[in-house]
Lab assay of single mutants.
Amino acid sequence: SEEELIEKAEKLRKEFEFIWNGIRFIIRENADEIRRFEELLKE
């Protein structure tokens, strides 16, 4: 039914948001290391 689809979509959206926030947190935490690594690659 349509309601089930909406519920599934909402659940997926929440899971995606949770994963995305996790990725963003990891990137933020490691931003300095990532930048340093990029500098090494440029040399």
Rank of each mutant, 00 (worst) to 15 (best):
E39S: 06
W20C: 13
E3M: 10
L40W: 12
E38H: 12
L5E: 04
E10Y: 06
I27V: 02
R24N: 02
R24Q: 02
E2W: 14
R24V: 07
K11H: 05
N21W: 14
I19P: 00
F16E: 00
S1N: 10
D32H: 09
F37R: 01
K11D: 06
I6V: 07
E10T: 08
A31P: 03
E7F: 07
L41M: 05
I34T: 03
F18Q: 02
R24A: 05
I34E: 03
S1A: 09
A31Y: 10
E43A: 11
I19M: 04
E10K: 12
W20S: 00
N21Y: 13
K8E: 06
I19E: 00
E15K: 14
I27S: 02
E29K: 11
R36Y: 10
L40G: 02
K14D: 03
A31N: 04
N30D: 03
K8L: 13
L41F: 10
K14E: 03
F25M: 10
L41K: 01
N30P: 04
D32F: 13
E43L: 11
K8M: 12
L12F: 06
E33G: 09
L12P: 03
D32E: 06
E43M: 11
R13D: 02
F16L: 06
F25W: 13
E15A: 15
D32A: 10
R36H: 04
E29D: 09
R24C: 15
L12A: 03
N21G: 03
E38Y: 15
A9F: 12
E29S: 11
L5R: 04
L5K: 07
E15G: 11
L41H: 01
E3V: 08
E15F: 15
S1W: 13
F37Q: 01
I27Y: 04
E33K: 11
K11Q: 10
I27H: 00
E17A: 11
E39W: 12
E10G: 09
E10W: 14
W20H: 00
K14L: 11
N30L: 15
K11T: 10
R13V: 10
R28G: 06
G22Q: 13
I19S: 01
I27L: 07
E17M: 13
R35N: 05
E33R: 12
E17W: 14
L12M: 05
F37T: 02
I34H: 02
R36W: 12
F18T: 02
L12D: 03
L12K: 04
E7D: 08
I27P: 01
E7K: 05
E3F: 09
L40C: 14
R35A: 08
F25L: 06
